[in-house]
């Protein structure tokens, strides 16, 4: 029973992390149709923001957490301004490949100017310990991760439902032209979408880095793949789908880890991506999505 509880907690915390990343991808995609392949680099840049702040300023370790989130947010906004604006009205494939290029550029800039080797980044002590509930020893990090995911979601819901720009973002997902016709600036909506995706990625980055204890130029890649999977499972572009997809992916991964015999456990990611292929072909609208009538937008 203990074992079961611990694995459930494990699945929820991992799933929460994937959901944060997937939500960021989904927000940007729903607003402007861009598949942000450079989303993983937001994690990396958040991590390097921590590393450099520590190197040059040496603040208390707890202060690094807002630095990471802020760094990821600024990076996301900068990506939009510098790289994605010129291809905003291009076909989706162009945007996807541009983002792919941005991701390679960021990775290699870090390789050139910092190093390929991992650099250590400390985490606050209070995030690392365990606490006891009865007989169970529970890692603080996992509980914190799940709790923060829930908080971030609540904040996101508030933003989407209670603010003008949130309403505009939801409307833009359906019809951007109509949003602009009522006098809302497209740039502001898109910038907010990127900023939100950056904040979510920054929060996820704090947890990813506290698990790894170090940053390296290619660390964003695996989380990005997971976020993609989560988005596909839930239906690409759907926010609810991204959330559900993230949690489902966390559960599936932990389940496979527990169930698969050790000699084929290495194939876990192959199974996960096979699942992705199956969902894409058999239920392209995702596990929770409904088939939308797209009219002449249908591809």
């Amino acid at each position: 029973m203990d074992y079961f509880l611990q694995q459930t907690l494990n699945a929820l915390s991992i799933g929460g992390e994937y959901a944060l990343l997937a939500l960021g991808l989904a927000i940007v995609f729903s607003v402007m149709g861009l598949v942000n392949f450079a989303h993983g680099e937001l994690i990396t840049l958040g991590g390097y923001a921590m590393y450099f702040t520590l190197l040059f300023a040496g603040p208390p370790v707890a202060l690094l957490i807002p630095v990471c989130i802020l760094g990821a947010m600024l990076a996301a906004v900068a990506f939009d301004k510098v790289a994605f604006r010129p291809v905003r009205n291009a076909p989706p494939t162009t945007g996807l490949l541009t983002a792919f290029g941005v991701s390679i550029i960021i990775q290699n800039i870090l390789v050139i100017f910092v190093a390929t080797r991992a650099r250590p980044v400390p985490t606050p002590d209070w995030m690392r310990g365990n606490f006891m509930v009865g007989e169970l020893s529970i890692p603080v990090l996992q509980v914190l991760e799940f709790a923060v995911t829930c908080l971030a979601l609540a904040g996101l819901l508030l933003l989407l439902n209670r603010t003008v720009v949130g309403l505009a973002m939801r409307a833009a997902a359906k019809d951007f032209v109509a949003v602009r016709m009522v006098g809302i600036k497209a740039n502001r909506v898109i910038m907010t979408a990127f900023a939100v995706s950056g904040v979510l990625a920054g929060i996820a980055a704090v947890f990813i880095i506290s698990r790894r204890g170090a940053v390296d130029p290619f660390m964003g890649f695996i989380p990005l793949l997971k976020a993609f999977v989560a988005c596909v499972l839930g239906g690409f572009g759907s926010l609810l789908g991204a959330l559900v997809g993230g949690i489902v992916l966390g559960c599936v991964e932990v389940f496979l880890q527990v169930v698969l015999p050790p000699d084929i456990a290495g194939y876990r990611d192959a199974f996960v991506f096979l699942l992705v292929g199956l969902v894409l072909v058999l239920k392209p609208e995702g596990l929770v999505g409904k088939r939308a009538e797209l009219g002449d937008k249908e591809e």
């Binding site: 494939t93 194939y267 992705v276 292929g277 894409l280 072909v281």
Partner: peptide
């Protein structure tokens, strides 16, 4: 059977699957 973004992610899934098999 896939188009657009879904097709691209599908092809990427193929690459990852083949790589995982080659490594494992």
């Amino acid at each position: 059977r896939l188009t657009g973004v879904a097709a691209t992610i599908g092809t990427m899934a193929l690459l990852v699957i083949v790589h995982v098999v080659l490594v494992n």
